[in-house]
Design a protein around this nucleic acid. Sequence first.
RNA 1: CGGGGCGUAGCGCAGCCUGGUAGCGCACCACAAUGGGGUUGUGGGGGUCGGGAGUUCGAAUCUCCCCGCCCCGACCA
Length: 569
Amino acid sequence: MRFTEFGLTTLKEGPAEAEIVSHKLMLRAGLIRRLASGLFTWMPLGVRVLRKVESVVREEMDRAGALELLMPAVQPAELWRETGRWDQYGPLLLRMQDRHEREFCFGPTHEEVITDIARRELQSYRQLPINFYQIQTKFRDEIRPRFGVMRSREFIMKDAYSFDIDAAGLENAYQKMHAAYTAIFERLGLRFRVVWADSGEIGGSKSQEFHVLADSGEDAIAYCDADGYASNVETAATLPPKAERAAPSRPLEKIDTPGVRTIDDLCRLLDIAAEQTLKTLIVNGVDGPVAIILRGDHELNAVKAQKLDIVAAPLTMADADTIRAATGSEAGSLGPVDLDLPIIFDHAVASMADFSCGANEVGKHYVGVNFGRDLPEPNTMDVRNVVPGDPTPGGNGTLSIARGIEVGHIFQLGDKYSRAMGATVQDREGVERIMAMGCYGIGITRIVGAAIEQNHDDRGIIWPAPLAPFDVVLIPINMQRSEPLRKAAEALYAELARVGLDVLFDDRDVRPGVKFADADLVGVPHRLVISERSLAAGELEYRHRRDADARNLDRDAALNLLKESILSN
RNA sequence: CGGGGCGUAGCGCAGCCUGGUAGCGCACCACAAUGGGGUUGUGGGGGUCGGGAGUUCGAAUCUCCCCGCCCCGACCA
C-alpha cells in the first residue's frame, strides 16, 4: 500500500476526550474516529488490525471444530420473552419497534437466537456435540461508555455456543474452548491470565474470564503464583480468620464524635487505624433494609452480597430516608450495637476486639466494642473484596492484585436457555433430553485497545506482529529528488510485496522526520529505510519498532530477515 | 441515573468575568527555499461561536430552556 493512496491522516494532538493511551493512540494514528458516545468508525488502518484479530480467532475456532454461522443482529422480542430476559435485561438492551409496532432488540448477545436454531435443527444426540460461532456486531447500551473501543456501545464480538447431550459433554466442550482461547491469546502475542469469574447476567454455573494484563484495566484480578489460583476479585473468596480473637481489654464507651462522617474522619479523630473500626452499610433487602458490617478498611463486594437470600439483587444502597427510618440515625454514625435490623457480618470482623463503630446516634461512636460482651458472637460470611495479602482459598499462599482487561469469557450455561426454550434431542433410548449449553465470547474490538495498552511507548503503538496492520514500512529518504533512488525504492516495494509482505510504502514528499514519526506512531513492526547513501553501499537500514537503534544490512540479508519474520507468524 | 466539568474551523485551545468587525497553534491548499527524527517563509481556504428563546442600539460574551460530549460512582466482551 502506498501511503499517498491510503487516506491516512495522523494527529499530533489527540482529542481531549481520550483518557487512556490506547484511545489516544488509536485516534492519533487514525485507526478510529468517533461518531457519537460509544460509537466509532473503524478507518482503513483500524480495519486491517481488526481483520488480523478476526483471522486468528477464526482459525483457532475452526481448528477447535466450531462452525461459523451468522445470526441477525436484530432479534424479535418473543424470543427474549421465552427466557424471561426481555424483562430482566434492563436498559442495557436497546429495544426498538418496526413499522407494525412489533418489538425487537439489537442483540447484545445471542443465546436466544442460537437456542432457537438448536431446537429447530437438532433432533438427535447423533448431531452432538456441536459448537456454532459467529463474528458480529453487538450493541449494549452501556451506562457509561468510555475508553474508546474498550467500552463502546457498539462492538464486534466473537460468540460461540456449544450444545451437548449432558454435563460431561459440556465440560469437554468447555475445555476445548478454554484451550482454543489460550491458543488465540498466545498467538496474538498478549500477556494474559485466565481467572475464575461470576456468570452474572448470562447465567449458568462455571465461568472463567481471559484478561489482558494492563494497569488501566477496569477489572481487578486476585492471583497467587504459588498455587496458581486466579480469580476476578468479584468472585475471589475470603476465608474466616484463623487467628484467635484477643480478649477484651477495654470497657465499652460511647464518645462524642462531632462531624465524623467517614471511617477516615473517625481514624483521624481517635488516632487509630481503619482496621480497628467497623463499617456499617445499609442495603436494600428482600424484606426491608439489611445491615452489612465490614472492617473499616475493607470494601463491600456487590456480586457476593447480592447473592445472599435476604439481599435484593441487583445490590442497591438504601437511601438516606430508609436509613433514618430503620436506624434512627444516619450513614456515618451507624454500628451493629443495639441495631434492630438483619445484620450480615463479614468474616474479617470475627477476629476484631476493642474496636470502634458508630453508635446509631449522629455525632456519637462507641470505642472498646467487643463481640460476646457488647454484641452477640457474629455469624460471619464472605461479603467483601479480597485485598493483597489475603490467604488464597486453597490456603497455600497469599493473594496479589493485578489489573486486567476482560477480552474473553467462557461459561457453562447448563440448561438455563435450552430448558426455557425447549431445546431437546432424543438420546440413544429415544428419550427427549434437554441439551447442555456453553457460551464463549471474545471482544474483537476490545482486543485492539487492550493490545495497545500493553504495547506502546511514548512515540506510539508497538504492534505485536500478528496484529500489525502492515508487516513493514518502507521509507525512502528524499526519493522525489533522486530518480535512481525512486526506481530502487519502487523496485524494493514491488519485491517486498511479491514475497508476501504487507508493506506500507511511504511515498509522500515530506521530510524524513515526518515519516519516521508517523511510522513510530502507527507502530508497524519492521522499518526499512532506503536512501542514496544506503543505495550506494548496497544496503538497507533496518529497525524493529522495539529497537532503540537502526542497523545497516545488505539488501538480501534485510529481505531474508523480513521473510523469516512473517513465516514465524 | 446521581455528582463534577466542557461545547468557539478537521484537531488542540484563547477570547466570555468587564457586550462593540472572531483569533492562535496544528492540519489543509498554492508558491518558494530546505532535505536523515514532526523545517521555514509568503500567500490562501475553511466558522449557523452546540441549538432555541430572551435582555440590549448591538450577544461568542449576560439570562432562561434544550441538546451533545467528557470525567468520577453501580454493568460487561
